[in-house]
Amino acid sequence: MAAATLRSVLRRNRLVPLFETCRLRHLLFFSSSVDDAAAVAGTMSPDPHFMVEYLVTTCGFSPSEAAKFSKPLAHLRSTEKPDAVLNFMRSQGFDGAGIRKLISLKPIYLCCNVEKNLAPKFQFLRDLGLSESDIVHAILRNHGIIGQDVHRSIVPKLEMWESLLGSRELVLKHLKKTGWFFSSSVEKTMHPNLKFLRDECGIPEERVSSVLRTHPTLILRKPESLRALVVRAEELGIPRHSQMLMSILKALHMVSKETLGAKVEVLRSYGWSESEFFSAVKQSPNLLSLSPESIRRKMDFLINKVGYVPSFIAGHSCLLHYSLEKRVIPRLHVFEMLNMKGLWTRRGKFLSVVKLSNTKFMEKIVLPYKEKVPELLDILGAGECEGK
């Protein structure tokens, strides 16, 4: 993504003012924070193992868990900071299970400074529009928020995601439900990947953003891994400047080389040539997302029940995307019933009909015959529910 374009996008709805607002509120309202109260309430102990007992009695860990998680805390000689952190987290809606999860992920969080580290981040998330429960979910899924600087790290990452996904609402939706927002560096990973796709693969920014809205983690691959993914696409016959490249990368992103090899072997066992496989992938990149077992089941049905030859399926690979139970089998049964009644001949026409949307299928195939063959609706039942 060109730097000028990126800057112009980020200016539209910058997150930085939110950080400044959050910082001012923090100075006003948190100057006498939980840390001060904990300084009085915290207990001193010369015993280097006192944190084991603390984690058991205060957080609810088992003795073995406490022994494990206390190791990064061995330098502590007081419960002052842990008390402050626990009191603050509880005040923000974290229950015991949530607190234990955070500590198990990174025990050193118990050493955070509430006033300088935690409170500003929680206020920043509130200023984004997240509720208390939203913030709890977001932090449990993206616990890196706790250890990162708001201004230098969190804001740039959220701004980058807003520019890529296209809206603040979509960013917040993902933030609450997923755990990849803060897993990669903007400068070391996201920017180099965007530059590679733009400059060396010729992919327009709009196409990149369109794919990332459904597969955002593609841009979080290590730069060398993304380059290797492009090489795999080229091995499938998709040149890097092809308009299909992003669709192929989206599919390959979810499939290991070993799994892809297993899929190729399944299709070869039905007589597909390498060129037929490449042609099928170009027609339907999502073919790469099907499991070997799913491919085998669908090939068997289309060959043995529908009567298609493997080469025909290779030339119409969209057939492999449809659900057997929800679409292909119910529609085949409808045709068998109509054919038995002498009302329709399915020979040579099943492909065009299986591709119809539900609405069109009902209008063109089912409803015209519902009086003569009322059992058609029973045949479809709950199976015919795909709308594509």
Rank of each mutant, 00 (worst) to 15 (best):
286 N>D: 02
246 M>G: 03
117 N>L: 07
280 A>D: 10
35 D>V: 05
325 E>T: 15
289 S>W: 10
193 N>L: 04
154 I>W: 01
324 L>V: 01
370 K>F: 05
347 R>T: 15
306 V>F: 09
210 S>V: 12
81 K>C: 02
17 P>H: 14
151 H>Q: 12
186 V>Q: 08
144 G>T: 10
74 A>H: 11
142 N>I: 09
22 C>V: 06
63 P>G: 08
39 A>C: 06
148 Q>E: 15
305 K>T: 14
281 V>M: 14
10 L>N: 02
255 V>Q: 09
343 L>M: 13
316 H>F: 09
218 L>A: 05
228 A>N: 09
87 N>S: 14
265 E>N: 03
44 M>V: 10
314 A>R: 07
157 K>Y: 04
282 K>C: 04
183 S>N: 15
318 C>Y: 08
257 K>C: 12
375 E>S: 13
332 L>S: 13
172 L>P: 02
313 I>Q: 00
179 G>P: 12
322 Y>T: 03
13 N>P: 10
44 M>T: 11
231 V>R: 13
38 A>R: 00
230 V>L: 05
212 L>Q: 03
270 Y>D: 01
7 R>H: 11
281 V>P: 12
186 V>A: 06
192 P>K: 03
69 F>A: 03
107 P>N: 11
284 S>W: 07
217 T>E: 06
307 G>R: 09
356 L>C: 01
190 M>F: 03
374 P>W: 00
176 K>E: 04
377 L>N: 07
59 C>E: 04
275 S>R: 15
154 I>Q: 00
62 S>D: 13
305 K>D: 13
304 N>A: 07
61 F>W: 04
31 S>W: 15
347 R>Q: 15
22 C>Y: 05
331 R>F: 10
52 V>G: 05
78 S>V: 14
104 S>G: 09
128 L>R: 07
337 M>L: 13
231 V>S: 12
353 V>K: 10
170 L>N: 04
220 L>A: 03
333 H>C: 13
48 P>N: 09
226 L>F: 06
329 I>F: 13
4 A>V: 01
334 V>T: 11
54 Y>V: 06
202 G>Q: 04
270 Y>K: 00
229 L>H: 04
125 L>G: 00
125 L>E: 00
330 P>I: 05
323 S>E: 04
276 E>S: 10
106 K>E: 11
109 Y>A: 06
368 P>Q: 07
292 P>S: 06
130 L>Q: 05
318 C>I: 07
186 V>I: 10
161 W>R: 06
52 V>C: 09
226 L>D: 02
336 E>Y: 10
89 M>H: 05
264 V>R: 04
135 I>P: 00
290 L>N: 00
303 I>V: 15
113 N>K: 13
281 V>E: 12
346 R>K: 12
36 D>A: 05
272 W>A: 01
22 C>W: 05
255 V>S: 06
15 L>V: 14
320 L>R: 11
182 F>N: 15
276 E>D: 11
93 G>L: 01
67 A>D: 03
289 S>R: 13
275 S>T: 15
262 A>N: 07
160 M>V: 08
268 R>A: 07
368 P>V: 07
49 H>P: 14
269 S>F: 11
136 V>T: 03
316 H>D: 08
357 S>L: 03
18 L>M: 15
154 I>K: 00
291 S>T: 08
211 V>Y: 03
301 F>N: 00
354 V>T: 02
254 M>L: 14
107 P>C: 13
